[in-house]
């Protein structure tokens, strides 16, 4: 099921990105709002937060250039902002609904590498955040660029070391669970 959703999503993305009519885009947004009725505010907030920097700067710059060159095309601004919103809203909605790992289960290797990576990322992220708190606890002076290089260099070494250890452990665990038997 998730596989077909993902396929449908990709086709929709392509279709939406070739639409240049603001009315149709607006209609799609309304349809998306209706489907995701309960989460409109939540998803919209996510979309705006994650796109505002890029889309905002492009829009502002486009306005400035348009005014200077006396060639401001408001239609373009509406089109690009609507399209960015539609596509990103669709993406956030779809990926909150589907189980990505199931959707990509057509390839066993890809599927396992994704799941394993995701687990490792959560694990590494926790350690990294702990490390950031530790730095907050111990560093009160402005550090120099040199200090940062040393600190990050050693942090990198810590994660490299952890990676070698974990890779070996995972490999053994997979073996013990019969992953390579087929």
């Amino acid at each position: 099921m998730d596989k077909y959703f993902l396929l449908g999503y990709f086709i929709s993305v392509i279709l939406i990105s070739i639409i240049h009519n603001p009315i149709i885009l607006l209609t799609i947004i309304i349809v998306l709002f209706l489907i995701s009725f309960k989460n409109i505010i939540k998803i919209s907030k996510k979309v705006i937060l994650s796109t505002i920097f890029f889309t905002g700067s492009v829009s502002v710059l486009y306005c400035i250039f348009g005014i200077i060159q006396n060639n401001l095309n408001v239609d373009y601004l509406i089109l690009i902002n609507l399209r960015v919103f539609t596509l990103n809203y669709l993406s956030f909605f779809v990926f909150s609904k589907i189980n990505l790992f199931k959707a990509l289960s057509f390839s066993k290797d890809l599927n396992y590498v994704l799941i394993l990576s995701y687990g490792q990322i959560l694990n590494y992220k926790k350690l990294f955040e702990e490390w950031q708190l530790f730095m907050k606890s111990r560093v009160v002076k402005q550090l120099s660029f040199r200090d940062y290089l040393q600190i990050y260099g050693h942090l990198t070494a810590l994660f490299f070391e952890k990676s070698f250890k974990n890779a070996k452990e995972i490999s053994l665990a997979m073996k013990s669970r019969g992953f390579f038997n087929d």
Binding site: L116, G119, Y124, K125, Y152, A167, I170
Partner: peptide
Amino acid sequence: NEDTLPLLSVLSALSFILMSI
């Protein structure tokens, strides 16, 4: 061989951390 998936997954996590620096 068998070490591919475990290695790629830990290195992806490693890459994730490096990008957070």
